[in-house]
Amino acid sequence: MSEKIKHFPGESLKGRDIREGRVPTIKHRPNVKYLWSAGVAMSRFLEGLKKGKIVGSSCKKCQRIMVPPRAFCEECFRPVDGYTNVKDTGTINTYSVSYVAGDASRIKEPILVAVIDLDGASKGMGILHLLGEIDDWKTIKFGMKVKAVWKLPEERTGTITDIKYFKPME
């Protein structure tokens, strides 16, 4: 803001005045639904999860094994050369302890989330997932080895949540 300017436009409203109807407002709750096609590469991934496998794709040119799998290598900009299973074990690259839900409301039991670098994929190929079977989150360490805990085969539906969470290996 310039010292030459003396008038600052904008009228601040109090949250309470809005909630209690002292400010004219219009409410609307959109009702929009989506059905997404999982796509060429991600369909292989979801079908793999149903069988208890984590599927990646490989590019011979840059020699990467990528998770999640893509239909094309975004670095080399060419089709991938094939699909391959990686392991369901890995190491914690980074983690967080969330006391906030998606709508910004507070939760008592924190959600433990991590980026896990998967064994068998190229270096740094992480996956976002939850951590479980951890009594005290302060025991989580960077570089800790973890393993996927799967839903029972009959419970799996072909989604990322077919893996319930990753648990420490020791």
Binding site: M42, S98, G102, I160
Partner: peptide, 18 residues
Amino acid sequence: PIYSRPLGVTLIWIFALE
């Protein structure tokens, strides 16, 4: 929508992870 949202991911998670 396929890979991340079913986990309940929020913006604050990814910044906390970074």
